[in-house]
C-alpha cells in the first residue's frame, strides 16, 4: 500500500535519512523502532510532506506522492497523529474532530465508528482541546486522524507520557483497526513491549538507516531489544 524507496533527507550539513526503503501493507501494524535522534520523526514528517525529501520515491495506493504538498497526501488517504499530540488547544473537541474532515468535500461527517472506538469523546464535545488531560488529548488526536477514514494511519509515539490505562485503551484501538484489514498502520514507538504486542512487522532505525527488519513475532529472537538499549 505505502511504498518508500531510497528516501534521503538532509538538514543543513547533516544527512538525516540515508536511503530508507520499506513497505507498509494493509491490515497490519508496521512498527518503526529506534533510539532518540535516529530520524524516526523526520521520516514521518518527510512522508507527510512537512519537510522536503532530498531524493527518493514515496508511492501510496499507486499514486506518486514524492513531491506532493501535505494536503495532497492527506487527500490521498494518509492520516497522521503527530508526536506530542498536537491538537488545537483553543478549538473545542468537536471542532478538532471536524478539522480531521478538512481534506474531504463539504458536508462530510465524523463517522460513528470514531465514537465507537473512543466513547469518552462523545461526552466532551463542547470542551476546549487544551483543557483535556494528556491521555484524552492523545485519544482526540487519534480520533481526529480517523475522522477522515484514512487508508494509512501514521502514529508518532502515541504512548509518550500517557498513563498505563490509556495506553491499554490505545493498544485496543490500534489492534481493532488493524483487524479490520483495510487500513495500513505505521507506528513509531520507543516503548518496546507496546510495540512488540502490536507489530505485524518491524523496522529498526539507526543513524538514519534501517538496520534490521522482520516479522513482528521474531522481534525477541532477532534481538531488537538489544538494538534499542543504550
Amino acid at each position: 500500500m505505502l511504498t518508500v524507496e531510497g528516501l534521503n533527507q538532509r538538514y543543513g550539513g547533516s544527512h538525516i535519512l540515508r536511503g530508507v526503503s520499506f513497505e507498509a501493507p494493509p491490515g497490519e501494524v508496521t512498527v518503526l523502532l529506534g533510539r532518540n535522534g535516529v530520524g524516526k520523526t523526520t521520516l514521518l514528517k518527510t512522508l507527510m510532506g512537512l519537510v522536503p525529501a532530498a531524493s527518493g520515491r514515496v508511492t501510496f495506493l499507486g499514486q506518486e506522492l514524492s513531491r506532493a504538498p501535505s494536503h495532497r497526501r492527506v487527500q490521498a488517504g494518509i492520516g497522521y497523529v503527530p508526536q506530542g499530540r498536537e491538537i488545537f488547544p483553543r478549538l473545542t473537541v468537536e471542532e478538532n474532530l471536524r478539522m480531521g474532515l478538512a481534506s474531504l468535500p463539504g458536508g462530510a461527517r465524523v463517522p460513528d465508528r470514531v465514537f465507537e472506538l473512543f466513547p469518552a469523546l462523545r461526552t466532551m464535545l463542547r470542551r476546549r482541546g487544551g483543557d483535556l488531560s494528556g491521555g484524552q488529548q492523545q485519544q482526540l488526536a487519534i480520533a481526529r486522524a480517523l475522522a477522515m477514514r484514512p487508508r494509512l494511519l501514521i502514529l508518532d509515539e502515541p504512548t509518550e507520557g500517557i498513563q498505563p490505562s490509556v495506553i491499554q485503551e490505545i493498544e485496543r484501538v490500534i489492534r481493532a483497526l488493524a483487524a479490520e484489514g483495510s487500513m495500513a498502520i505505521l507506528l513509531v514507538e520507543q516503548y518496546y513491549e507496546f510495540a512488540r504486542s502490536l507489530a505485524g512487522r518491524y523496522l529498526v532505525m539507526q543513524r538514519g538507516e534501517i538496520v534490521r527488519r522482520g516479522e513482528g513475532s521474531a522481534m525477541e529472537r532477532d534481538g531488537v531489544r538489544g538494538l534499542l538499549a543504550l
Binding site: Y80, P82, E86, I87, F88, P89, A102, M148
Partner: peptide, 15 residues
C-alpha cells in the same frame, strides 16, 4: 483557527 493554534497539525489534517 486551526492554523493559528498549530500550523503543523493543521497541515497534517489536510489544510
Amino acid at each position: 483557527k486551526a492554523v493559528r493554534d498549530d500550523e503543523i497539525a493543521a497541515g497534517a489534517m489536510g489544510v
